[in-house]
Design a protein around this nucleic acid. Structure first.
Lengths: 236, 236
DNA sequence: ACCTGAACACCGTTCAAGT
DNA sequence: ACCTGAACACCGTTCAAGT
């Protein structure tokens, strides 16, 4: 009976174990190096064994997304809608920073998974309970977009403006003399003095930029809500 | 001498011709089906022939992005910064809608290409000439993010909320009884009555949602600009 | 009935052989 | 010197053969 677990051997495969191993492997190797074959190897199993627990790679990725989304904090009790949503989204951002492959994988999904739908449903509930109309909430959710899950498409991680200024080693090459050819980019890149206080040091404060845009949107939502904004034309 | 073009044959390969063919192929088949081998086949050429004109697939994709970005309208003359940026971004959006693979490919780039840098430099110029500080412009560029190039990460193309409501055929399957399990999602999905006037018809007006968020951000930028907003803590 | 090795149809790119 | 076929090291997945 206990024969099935032998020689201190690996636990029998299960969907749970496959998903957890997949998340761990992606955490270590990144989304690009991740493959069914590598995952099977990591689990000490022949590739085809995975197909007993997931239909194919797409379904595996869906499952991995659900694991990650499940790590987002539940909504805080007793806060107003604006700070509640803010906290939730910043929690999602911390989760995404733990699993850096996740943003790219989420982007590649063609449809929402149950865990994502449950999360969206919960956030929508916060807006609706806060008094926002279904109409406004609809557009608000669109406006937040991927920010809801803690990421946003920064052009070329760091905002494109980061590369030309700091000679920090990486990235260069593509645009020699960028500072001369694109003076506005160089000027703007140098204007990120908030965390170090020094203009040199280089690099942007991603957290600051994320919250800047997030707060701008949330403030805009609040303003529209107070004004009783509606998307329908004000004719009858 | 004129022997090189023979039998009404194909023009000799060049970087230009490779890039144009690549864009055309991606337009037809989408980003997923696009491959070096398929492109070579389309050009009636052995795969290795491409490597005379591009170093590898990454460089080819960079070139394709530059072709697309080159299609964005130049800045309109004599407009205020806000409407100038708005027009430019809506032009970028029209370009991206012509090349639906482009958003995904741009996301995958690790650094900005020359054409992208030139575009960013130009947009930054519009903000700076409009009187915005380098500091504010820096954060504004971050806040716009991928929206600058005409797209934004919509969760699961259509906003996740679209799927559960309309039985329009596609997408379903993953979440049966979604309307029951996620009632807020269903309510919000039904609240998109702006273009058809009918609640049924289903689907979101992507253009409306894109402009909604864009205008919310631009309005926020204008408000901060008028207030003389600075990111530095107001203590010295 | 279950599991799995080999095979299939790809992929980007290297490399050596042919001209 | 140039071009290119075969080969390499992958990939996700099918399928038939083995137990």
């Amino acid at each position: 009976m206990t024969q099935q677990r032998r020689a201190g051997a690996r636990a029998p495969l299960s969907r749970e174990r496959v998903l957890r191993a997949a998340v761990a492997l992606a955490d270590e190797t990144g989304a690009e190096a991740f493959s069914m074959r590598r995952l099977a190897q990591e689990l000490g199993v022949v590739p085809m064994a995975l197909y007993k627990h997931v239909a194919n790679k797409e379904e595996l990725l869906d499952g991995m997304v659900d694991v990650v989304v499940g790590e987002i904090d539940p909504p805080a009790a007793g806060a107003d809608w604006k700070s509640s949503v803010r906290q939730r989204i910043l929690s999602a951002r911390r989760v995404l920073l733990r699993h850096r492959w996740a943003a790219r994988v989420i982007e590649s999904r063609t449809g929402p998974t149950p865990a994502v739908l449950a999360y969206l449903d919960s956030v929508i509930g916060t807006f609706r309970d806060g008094g926002l109309s279904a109409d406004l909430t609809h557009h608000v959710m669109h406006a937040l977009g991927s920010r809801l899950l803690g990421f946003s498409q920064e052009l070329f991680d760091g905002g494109g403006a980061a590369a030309p200024t700091a000679p920090t080693g990486a990235a260069g090459g593509t645009a020699p003399d960028a500072a001369g050819a694109y003076p506005r980019v160089a000027e703007i890149a140098a204007a990120a003095a908030h965390d170090t206080g020094s203009v040199v040091g280089g690099g942007c404060d991603d957290q600051f930029e994320f919250e800047f845009a997030l707060d701008l949107l949330l403030d805009g939502f609040e303003r529209l809500h107070r004004q009783g904004w509606t998307s329908a034309p004000d004719a009858p």
